[in-house]
């Protein structure tokens, strides 16, 4: 039973970290309508930033600043935000498909840079030598994992509350207004370009936060962590959970990550031995089928966005929804 508990804590930690990332993307896509196809670049900037800032000295590449952990994490978030600001300035005026591909390109270039620039981040070997905070005091057993999970969970809840507030604020209404009809918003004297950039950078900082926690959890990051698969996974979580709904985003993260890992587990357990070697491909076929099936059955996600047309609190059904 301890084993099951230990695994569930581990699973929930990964899922919570991914949920934070999905929340960041939800601000960009769900609330603002920005099709960020390069999620993994900002996630990666957070992870690399945190580990390089907080790690011990490594020969051959940048690092060894030994910054205390909370500052290192903030540094990682700042790295993601800075990158988002530059990328945003260059690309945000593009619409949907074009924006998606351009940001996707940013992510590929990011991975490429991390893989090749050994002086920067160790090249393909990745960044190691990071000591998890308080590991010396707590050891690295089950206790550490539980505490780490609680911290991640607290950060997830804080992020959720922050975004709920933001979305309910006048700024949040402005985001939706721009998403729905940019010209109308503009005619009311708002600057869509500035608002979009703000939302893009904020969402990317949250992605960077998730990346920083991810890097901390594994105490390691390498170019293999920033491949396009992660972008796809995070998007799938948002779409299945329900774009525009923060609770849907969190739910989607747990559900998809659960399905992803459970399908591998189930195949290794129940598939006959001769078929074991093919389970990798079979699993991908299953994952593809789940996504396609979901979009045919319930395209708006399991917990769809609840659009509020009138003022807050004016209808009883609204209160009930909270």
């Amino acid at each position: 039973m301890i084993g099951v508990m230990s695994y569930l804590v581990f699973f929930a930690t990964t899922a919570s970290i991914l949920a934070i990332a999905v929340l960041g993307l939800n601000l960009q896509w769900g609330n603002t309508g920005l099709f960020n196809g390069g999620v993994v670049a900002f996630f990666g900037a957070g992870a690399y930033g945190t580990l390089i800032l907080g790690g011990t000295s490594q020969e051959g590449h940048l690092g060894g600043f030994g910054v205390i952990y909370p500052l290192a994490l903030l540094g990682g978030m700042a790295a993601a935000g800075l990158m988002a600001w530059i990328v945003g300035l260059l690309t945000l005026r593009l619409r949907h498909d074009y924006l998606a591909i351009a940001t996707f390109g940013v992510a590929v270039a990011f991975e490429n840079l991390m893989r090749n620039a050994e002086w920067l981040a160790g090249g393909a070997k990745g960044v190691r030598g990071f000591e998890r905070p308080l590991r010396a005091a707590l050891g690295d057993g089950f206790l550490y994992n539980i505490l780490f999970f609680l911290v991640v969970l607290a950060i997830l809840i804080a992020t959720y509350l922050f975004l709920e507030r933001l979305v309910a604020s006048p700024f949040g209404r402005l985001l939706r207004a721009i998403r729905e009809d940019e010209e109308a918003a503009q005619s009311l004297g708002k600057s869509p370009a500035k608002v979009r950039l703000t939302a893009f950078v904020t969402g990317s900082v949250i992605l960077g936060l998730a990346g920083g926690l991810y890097g901390t959890f594994y105490a390691f990051v390498s170019p293999q962590d920033v491949l396009p698969t992660l972008t796809f996974q995070i998007w799938a979580m948002l779409i299945v959970g329900g774009a525009g709904n923060n609770r849907g985003a969190i739910f989607g993260a747990f559900l998809i990550w659960g399905a992803w890992t459970a399908s591998g587990w189930a195949l290794s357990r129940f598939a006959p031995i001769e078929a074991q070697l093919y389970t990798g491909s079979v699993q991908f076929v299953l994952i593809g089928s789940v996504i396609v099936g979901m979009l045919m059955w319930r395209p708006e996600g399991l917990l769809p966005e609840r659009l509020v047309v009138s003022q807050r609190g004016s209808t009883p059904s609204n209160k009930q929804g909270e």
Binding site: A100, A236, F284, V285, G288, S289, V292, L295, M296
Partner: peptide, 20 residues
Amino acid sequence: KGLELSMIFASFGMALIIRN
């Protein structure tokens, strides 16, 4: 079903299926 991004993700899912 008519949602903007559904098609893109459905195609992503199909790509995984065909490839594997």
